[in-house]
């Protein structure tokens, strides 16, 4: 336990001193500001385009538009940034050989992997919270009257999917040597999930639902129970992937 905490401290120090934490916070802060900005800007931009004499009646922007922008940013760029940030957490150390000292000092490999996954997850949690609270603040300030349903639920499943992606990344980092190969494999996995979406029968099991249906979830009529299977699927896959990476990392020669 003490080694685990010590290694977490080391990972935290690394994020701070290599400016990665600062970078993540700034980027997610920008996501938070941009989402309501885009929602507010959109009708104005459209009306500029519509000056050519065609009358387009646009609905006034509402809170739902802010969150639509928020989920669009976070499920695409947000997840990409997080996966990129932690794409080298193991591959870089294995490549340089910095773990040799610590392992020969008695640091179990499982501790290394779990501590790294913990730090990545905590960072994702903090970044998501930051972006969400900024968007939430602006939205409440701009459109205080609008009613939104299942908002925290929708953000929570996005958060869960982020944890799943980090587990996918950890798994491939214990298997392949290069950071680039690992990123390509993660991309293939996401592509695979999108392909599975084409089969309606698989639809209700697909973890991808957690990041494609976020806006629909905000509707009062959305049936949250339809998410139960994808949620358990995602949790199950995350655990399996983590166990798999522990096994692969254990077999890996330093």
């Amino acid at each position: 336990m003490r080694a685990y905490l010590a290694f977490i401290k080391k990972e935290g120090l690394e994020l701070i001193r290599t400016y990665k934490l600062l970078l993540m916070f700034l980027i997610f802060f920008a996501f938070g500001v941009m989402s309501p900005l885009m929602a507010k800007l959109m009708p104005d931009l459209m009306s500029q385009l519509a000056l050519e004499g065609i009358e387009i009646s646009l609905p006034e922007p509402s809170a739902i538009d802010c969150y639509a922008q928020f989920f669009k940013n976070l499920t695409q760029m947000g997840l990409l940034v997080i996966v990129l940030m932690f794409s080298g957490m193991l591959t870089q150390e294995l490549g340089k050989g910095t773990l040799v000292h610590l392992v020969t000092k008695g640091l179990p490999k499982s501790t290394i992997l779990l501590a790294k996954y913990t730090v990545a997850s905590l960072s994702w949690t903090a970044c998501l919270l930051l972006a969400f609270s900024v968007t939430y603040g602006y939205t409440v300030y701009l459109f205080s009257g609008d009613e939104i349903f299942h908002l925290f639920y929708s953000v929570s499943v996005l958060w869960l999917f982020g944890l799943f992606l980090l587990a996918v990344s950890s798994f491939f980092q214990t298997i392949v040597k290069s950071q680039a190969t690992q990123l390509i494999l993660v991309a293939f996995c996401i592509g695979g999930l999108f392909l599975l979406k084409l089969f309606p029968k698989m639809e209700e099991y697909n973890p991808l639902t957690l990041v494609t249906d976020n806006v629909a979830m905000l509707d009062k009529a959305y049936d949250l129970t339809s998410l139960t299977i994808p949620i358990f699927m995602t949790i199950g896959l995350t655990i399996v992937l983590l166990l798999g990476s522990l096994l692969a990392f254990f077999k890996k020669q330093l």
């Binding site: 970078l23 900005l37 104005d44």
Partner: peptide, 24 residues
């Protein structure tokens, strides 16, 4: 755009973050 003032609450933090990061 006539309502630039409307956008200031967004633009100021965004520009500060962008410029700050760029300069750093």
């Amino acid at each position: 755009m006539n309502q630039l003032a409307d956008y200031l609450p967004f633009l100021i933090p965004l520009v500060v973050a962008q410029l700050g990061l760029a300069i750093f």
